[in-house]
């Protein structure tokens, strides 16, 4: 049975934004650190490292999850998506991102990646999500700047555009 010892680095292989990546890290490294400092995807932010703030939210196998609560050793075989994958091409924002821009859904932007990953997953799973469902999902992401209302508006606008088939 595979036992990865405590003191060495081990190879962990997973997919990030559609590309297979292998990193050599200690078991204990947090996925948030792997993404940011081993792979260089610094769009995923770290605000608490205890699962409450949501800044580190990424999608794991399609569902939004805390990157700070995943150990590198657990990441083997995961399919991970981060904020860097949201825009289809450089220079063009996704519908959701554009809605945030239009509705001033961000100020400092530190919480934004996590919020986008939560909403992106939600709108993919529930294209007709009600405002209540959207708020419930957002309650797992803290924002200290905006007072949330602009974020909710952006989310509703994105939902409506996507429903109309925008992309």
């Amino acid at each position: 049975m595979p036992v990865l010892n405590a003191t060495s680095r081990h190879e962990v292989t997973f997919r990030v934004n559609g590309t297979e990546r292998t990193v050599r890290v200690e078991n204990r490294m947090l996925l948030s650190d792997v993404l940011r400092h081993e792979i260089g995807l610094t769009g995923t932010h770290v605000g608490c490292e205890h699962g409450v703030c949501g800044a580190c939210t990424v999608q794991i196998d399609g569902a939004p999850a805390r990157a700070c609560l995943v150990l590198a050793a657990q990441a083997e075989g995961m399919n991970i998506r981060t904020v860097e994958a949201l825009a289809a091409e450089t220079g063009r924002l996704s519908v959701l991102q554009q809605a945030f821009r239009d509705h001033h859904g961000l100020q400092c932007g530190f919480c934004t990646s996590g919020i986008l990953m939560t909403l992106d997953a939600l709108l993919a799973a529930e294209p007709d999500a009600s405002e209540g469902v959207i708020r419930d999902a957002l309650s797992g992401n803290l924002c200290r700047c905006t007072g949330y209302e602009p974020i909710v508006r952006a989310a509703l606008a994105a939902r409506d555009t996507l429903r109309k088939g925008g992309n």
């Binding site: 940011r36 610094t42 991102q97 945030f100 961000l106 934004t112």
Partner: peptide
């Protein structure tokens, strides 16, 4: 005017440059 912010595109795509980045 309520113009779009020049900061946003960078931040929304995860390209912000915060201290730890």
């Amino acid at each position: 005017q309520c113009v779009a912010r020049v900061e946003d595109a960078t931040l929304l795509t995860g390209n912000g440059r915060y201290l730890d980045d």
